[in-house]
Design a protein around this nucleic acid. Structure first.
Lengths: 340, 340
DNA sequence: GGCTACAGTCGAACCGGTTCGCAACGGACG
DNA sequence: CGTCCGTTGCGAACCGGTTCGACTGTAGCC
């Protein structure tokens, strides 16, 4: 592999001159620049990333920490990852993917060893163990997901409170008076999946304010349990005319469950989910839903992170906490409740 | 951040001694080793990855190239990625995720700049543009997917020919005499998705050998097109009693389509898919299927890649091309054909 | 004509590790 | 008591970039 020394020799200049000719950080005569560029082409020179990182203290790599936990719905994560990855590349950064079960150790490893210039954290928990480590790291961090304590990091998330209100409002306006909210498994909540109860609390509150009955239940994240949970819910609350589904696996299982019970949406039951449009199209989910905009959140996180890395924001500039406003995508799965 | 120089000073030894004490590559007295280790702990020393890469020409990072193309089913890729990522970590390697649309440029970039010690290529096409670049790279490569030319790389893939035969045999044994094979969109085939016609050709051949009729058709990879395609298929071939589904999106859309037509599997139609068990459970797909074992393939690829990186295989040792034998997972969606 | 200013280039130092060659030391042995 | 050898540690070089300070030559200016 050619080094910059080889390039310099071929062009008949010193190493430093070759370096300046390529970086443009000092004035270089047109003639020399041409010779250097030609040498680069002939030798197929590419700078050694490790050497450059050592010299500049910049790796042009962003660490992406994604946890794939039991009881969590993996495919939803993919879209966040792609949003992050694609945006990073547009801005000239590569992605170091860390799917380690032990996120804290992994985070410490890649920050301390200076493998990355910044960190994006996915599925952030209410009290995320990784946060203290991230704060003490030399690199800036951006989160997708809202923790209890946001100091020292930039935070991006869907406005789950508003999402809960929008879902309830939508069914209330159509005339529904008894609905159920299908949430994530208990495990996810216990683990600190704050978005679950952020949406749920807001939905409960909105239901109370409008005087309608809302049954919050949780359902599993996999078959066959999730099907069983959905059936149990419909058995337990026969008066329910609307379903708010805040659980991707449940949304995916719902068509089959409804079919087996001889029910149709929206004639027998109105359904509103909370997942991305991309997700709905990929899995043929026919329900209206709150768009969760994962690619957009990933994009926002990386943009801000890179601004911090490149010092475009003063180090003392306050960190941002930004919420994306949820939007309802109508797929025709809601209507007036059946009149019993 | 503490350097090895700081550690050496704190322990009262030279830099080289500190290095040897930590690597164990030379004999060091117990006393000195203790002092060095203590200094490491006190200073919170972690070796700088860039510096180490520069000195050792080893980054302990594996490049993972995954293309997310139009008309391809993204979530299936996730499982390959996780298999690769988790296995790599177990073996001490991190993953540089490259989801670049321009795979060739990205591949050249990360190999030439020595960011990675090896490369894993996902969704490999029949004549993959990335392959010549990978062969000319200094780092070894492992593929998941079978290209036309396997020289210079280790290749792992499902035995799609056998998969096609197993699917046809299965329905033939149950008494079916007219079946359809739902493949990927034409685009995927044109792009060089060899697995599509490897399975298809073998299925056609098996059908001919057993004297049964097989209609090969392709279907889109997204809603609403895939639903339309499935309906068109069932309209065009009313005599079909069995469906072989080699298209994840079609499998995901099938329950709804069958429901709308008032059909049930296996009573009205036998269905066999080709996707992973994990996939089936996540999306509540009720059909028997050929297990595609994505995590296993990813794991095999990384294992072999690391063996090459670490020189456990002689450089001239022939490269392997290994096929995983498909297995049918019975979910009760097949039976004897309805007697018309 | 002498001075300054500046464009253009070079040499050397540095980033933070690893590794090779060598020397000092102490014990065993003849 | 001298020699030989194994153990242990040190100094220096090296990996491949970047960057700072200094030096040279030429143009512009008074």
């Amino acid at each position: 592999m050619a080094t910059i020394g080889d390039v310099a020799r071929a062009a008949g200049v010193s190493r430093s001159t070759a370096s300046y000719a390529l970086s443009g950080k000092r004035a270089i005569s047109a003639d020399v620049r041409r010779r250097v560029e030609e040498a680069v082409r002939e030798l197929g020179y590419t700078p050694n990333a490790g050497a450059r990182a050592l010299a500049t203290s910049q790796t042009m790599v962003i660490g992406l920490l994604a946890q794939f936990l039991e009881d969590e719905f993996a495919p939803a994560m993919l879209q966040y990852m792609l949003g992050v990855s694609n945006t990073a590349r547009e801005l000239g950064y590569d992605i170091l993917l860390v799917s380690d079960a032990d996120g804290t150790r992994a985070l410490r490893r890649i920050t301390d060893s200076r493998m990355v210039d910044g960190i994006v954290l996915l599925n952030v928990a209410e009290r995320d163990e990784r946060l203290p480590i991230l704060r003490s790291a030399a690199q800036p961090g951006a989160l997708v997901g809202l923790p209890a304590d946001c100091t020292g990091v930039d935070v991006f998330d869907l406005d789950f409170e508003e999402a809960g209100r929008v879902m309830v409002d939508h069914l209330h306006r159509l005339g529904h008076r008894e609905v159920a909210l299908v949430s994530q498994p208990e495990h996810v909540i216990e683990r600190g999946g704050a978005y679950v109860w952020r949406l749920q609390n807001a939905a409960v509150e909105a239901a109370r304010a409008r005087g309608i009955t809302l049954h919050p239940v949780s359902a599993a994240a996999h078959q066959p349990d999730v099907g069983r949970d959905l059936n149990a819910l419909l058995d337990a609350h026969p008066g329910v005319t609307g379903l708010l589904v805040h659980n991707e696996a449940a949304a995916a299982a719902l068509p089959t469950v409804l079919h087996e019970r001889g029910l149709t949406a929206p004639e027998d039951l109105s359904v509103v989910g909370r997942y991305s449009d991309e997700f709905a199209r990929t899995f043929s989910l026919p329900y209206s839903s709150i768009e969760s905009a994962p690619d957009r959140l990933g994009r926002m996180a990386v943009r801000q992170l890179v601004r911090r890395i490149e010092g475009e924001v003063a180090a003392d500039e306050p960190h941002v906490v930004r919420f994306v406003t949820p939007e309802l995508v109508d797929r025709g799965s809601t209507g007036a409740p059946r009149t019993t």
